[in-house]
Amino acid sequence: MPVRRGHVAPQNTFLDTIIRKFEGQSRKFIIANARVENCAVIYCNDGFCELCGYSRAEVMQRPCTCDFLHGPRTQRRAAAQIAQALLGAEERKVEIAFYRKDGSCFLCLVDVVPVKNEDGAVIMFILNFEVVMEKDMVGSPAHDTNHRGPPTSWLAPGRAKTFRLKLPALLALTARESSVRSGGAGGAGAPGAVVVDVDLTPAAPSSESLALDEVTAMDNHVAGLGPAEERRALVGPGSPPRSAPGQLPSPRAHSLNPDASGSSCSLARTRSRESCASVRRASSADDIEAMRAGVLPPPPRHASTGAMHPLRSGLLNSTSDSDLVRYRTISKIPQITLNFVDLKGDPFLASPTSDREIIAPKIKERTHNVTEKVTQVLSLGADVLPEYKLQAPRIHRWTILHYSPFKAVWDWLILLLVIYTAVFTPYSAAFLLKETEEGPPATECGYACQPLAVVDLIVDIMFIVDILINFRTTYVNANEEVVSHPGRIAVHYFKGWFLIDMVAAIPFDLLI
């Protein structure tokens, strides 16, 4: 008679799926529990143990900040960024110097990925580790590398530091407007667009060049630039800015003055950032001319202004700041037409079709709590990747769950009947059967004279019903998954307890 339990259901295979997918890609990662103190490590794979030199037993239950890997060259700011990422709910990448158990130093890129439950609360953290440099290539500990984003994938490793954006290309926007319009339909740009040429040739750093990471940081200074100062900065030398009595002219307006920039070969870094931020506020060169004239017309309804409409929906549905990093990277690809469009465009503009998908598509409701890094690593669709929660398995109709209350009560009843059979069957065979043979035949009273025979008949009927119930009862397979398919249940029961239950259900007393 089957006594099969499996009270692990309803099970959740999400954690096993993450481990299996990460292991298949030869990654070095740990999984931490966000619900406990210090976000203790609950799993670390073999790749991480080989990377740091510690065994799994030495890593388990330690804080996922990996303070046991810190050393003299470990930056405090990087460690603080990892700790801050564990307090938030967004994906974050941090470069930090770690030390192995043998004392060797290596520069590592740590990717902190939160995993949320159905309520939107962070319950786990996945920390992925990628070695960037070994100890002989690690720089000085005073050099802070965590304020910069990861290198873009479309640049060669040897040319990542030679990417320079020439400031004269930004200063000569109005001069290039006529050349853009003359391109017409034969050019790649839309009317009114501004073409910015980027020099990728390796050259020595000069005062006129600005690194790509500095251009990325310009967006942080746009908020500090007032509207009046932006307007004066875009007017140009024809209309000098008016300053109040006793007030000095704005240095932001002076930063885009061609006369002032041409007199000296070098520009201050602050002026460069502010000038680029001011130019980015204009949607095209037409807006710059309109600002000089004193009238700013409404933005025209053409394809170039609607190019950012799908980007707005993608940004609203993005799951991490990696989408913004990807957008900034692609927006700086050289030799393309940049349409400086305000994100607050007309909502009635139709979304044009684009061959290049900048932001990841909208994630469906079932995966809105899973970050983009987890979705990318697992390579699963929205119909396959579940949320991290207890999910009731989908069972067929008329199927009994093996952990249901009805099955528990039924098993206790069958257990009592088995005990009765084990006690009274030998007793009936030894004593009652002998008395029946010696006594007179009682054929007239039937079952009324033999109450134990009636009980034995009921017990046999219950055993037959138990066999039928076992054909529709779920079970737990070797992978700790609840199986509810009727065919698989029948095959599993035939290979197991079916023969024993059938022999126990045969009414031998009635056959004798």
Rank of each mutant, 00 (worst) to 15 (best):
residue 2 P to V: 06
residue 3 V to N: 14
residue 4 R to F: 15
residue 5 R to C: 07
residue 5 R to A: 09
residue 6 G to S: 07
residue 6 G to F: 12
residue 6 G to Q: 14
residue 9 A to C: 09
residue 9 A to H: 15
residue 10 P to N: 12
residue 11 Q to L: 11
residue 14 F to L: 07
residue 15 L to M: 08
residue 15 L to I: 15
residue 17 T to F: 11
residue 19 I to L: 09
residue 21 K to F: 04
residue 22 F to S: 13
residue 23 E to V: 03
residue 31 I to F: 03
residue 31 I to W: 01
residue 32 A to V: 03
residue 33 N to F: 01
residue 33 N to D: 06
residue 33 N to G: 06
residue 33 N to A: 07
residue 35 R to M: 11
residue 36 V to M: 15
residue 41 V to A: 01
residue 41 V to P: 01
residue 43 Y to D: 01
residue 45 N to D: 01
residue 45 N to V: 01
residue 51 L to P: 01
residue 58 E to M: 06
residue 58 E to W: 09
residue 60 M to P: 01
residue 65 T to N: 07
residue 66 C to M: 15
residue 70 H to M: 11
residue 71 G to A: 01
residue 74 T to M: 01
residue 76 R to M: 10
residue 77 R to I: 15
residue 81 Q to W: 05
residue 82 I to A: 01
residue 87 L to S: 07
residue 88 G to D: 13
residue 89 A to E: 14
residue 89 A to G: 14
residue 90 E to P: 03
residue 91 E to W: 13
residue 93 K to M: 09
residue 93 K to E: 13
residue 95 E to L: 09
residue 100 R to E: 01
residue 100 R to M: 01
residue 103 G to V: 01
residue 104 S to K: 08
residue 104 S to F: 06
residue 104 S to C: 12
residue 111 D to P: 01
residue 116 K to G: 07
residue 117 N to D: 06
residue 117 N to R: 13
residue 120 G to L: 14
residue 121 A to P: 11
residue 122 V to D: 06
residue 122 V to N: 06
residue 123 I to P: 13
residue 127 L to E: 01
residue 128 N to F: 06
residue 130 E to Q: 15
residue 133 M to H: 14
residue 134 E to R: 14
residue 136 D to P: 14
residue 136 D to T: 11
residue 139 G to V: 13
residue 140 S to E: 14
residue 145 T to W: 09
residue 147 H to A: 11
residue 147 H to E: 08
residue 148 R to V: 14
residue 149 G to A: 05
residue 151 P to H: 12
residue 152 T to V: 12
residue 152 T to C: 06
residue 154 W to P: 08
residue 155 L to Y: 06
residue 155 L to M: 06
residue 162 T to H: 15
residue 165 L to R: 09
residue 166 K to F: 05
residue 167 L to T: 15
residue 168 P to M: 01
residue 168 P to H: 06
residue 172 A to H: 06
residue 172 A to G: 15
residue 174 T to P: 15
residue 174 T to Y: 06
residue 181 R to S: 08
residue 182 S to P: 05
residue 189 G to A: 06
residue 192 G to D: 15
residue 194 V to L: 01
residue 196 V to K: 04
residue 198 V to L: 06
residue 200 L to H: 11
residue 200 L to T: 15
residue 201 T to N: 06
residue 201 T to R: 09
residue 201 T to C: 08
residue 201 T to D: 07
residue 203 A to N: 15
residue 204 A to C: 05
residue 205 P to Y: 04
residue 206 S to Y: 05
residue 207 S to N: 06
residue 212 L to E: 06
residue 215 V to S: 15
residue 215 V to R: 06
residue 215 V to E: 15
residue 216 T to R: 12
residue 217 A to R: 13
residue 219 D to P: 06
residue 223 A to Q: 05
residue 223 A to C: 03
residue 225 L to V: 10
residue 227 P to K: 11
residue 230 E to R: 08
residue 237 P to M: 14
residue 238 G to V: 05
residue 239 S to L: 08
residue 239 S to Q: 14
residue 239 S to C: 08
residue 240 P to F: 15
residue 243 S to Y: 15
residue 243 S to E: 15
residue 244 A to V: 12
residue 245 P to R: 07
residue 251 P to V: 11
residue 254 H to I: 13
residue 255 S to T: 09
residue 256 L to V: 14
residue 256 L to S: 14
residue 257 N to H: 03
residue 258 P to F: 08
residue 261 S to G: 11
residue 262 G to R: 11
residue 265 C to M: 15
residue 270 T to G: 14
residue 273 R to N: 07
residue 275 S to R: 11
residue 278 S to Q: 15
residue 281 R to N: 07
residue 286 D to I: 14
residue 286 D to A: 07
residue 287 D to E: 14
residue 287 D to Q: 12
residue 291 M to S: 09
residue 296 L to H: 08
residue 297 P to M: 05
residue 302 H to A: 08
residue 308 M to C: 11
residue 309 H to V: 09
residue 311 L to P: 07
residue 311 L to Y: 09
residue 315 L to I: 15
residue 316 L to K: 04
residue 316 L to D: 15
residue 319 T to E: 14
residue 319 T to K: 07
residue 319 T to S: 09
residue 321 D to K: 09
residue 322 S to T: 15
residue 323 D to R: 07
residue 325 V to H: 08
residue 326 R to H: 07
residue 329 T to P: 15
residue 329 T to H: 14
residue 332 K to L: 01
residue 333 I to Q: 15
residue 333 I to N: 12
residue 334 P to W: 01
residue 334 P to N: 08
residue 336 I to T: 15
residue 338 L to V: 09
residue 338 L to W: 05
residue 341 V to Q: 05
residue 342 D to N: 07
residue 344 K to P: 10
residue 346 D to L: 08
residue 349 L to F: 15
residue 350 A to D: 09
residue 352 P to R: 09
residue 352 P to L: 13
residue 353 T to I: 14
residue 354 S to V: 12
residue 355 D to L: 10
residue 358 I to W: 13
residue 358 I to G: 05
residue 359 I to H: 11
residue 359 I to M: 05
residue 359 I to N: 06
residue 360 A to T: 12
residue 361 P to E: 07
residue 361 P to C: 07
residue 362 K to V: 12
residue 362 K to L: 11
residue 363 I to T: 09
residue 363 I to C: 07
residue 366 R to H: 07
residue 368 H to I: 11
residue 369 N to G: 06
residue 372 E to M: 11
residue 372 E to H: 15
residue 372 E to W: 07
residue 373 K to H: 01
residue 377 V to D: 03
residue 379 S to Q: 06
residue 385 L to F: 14
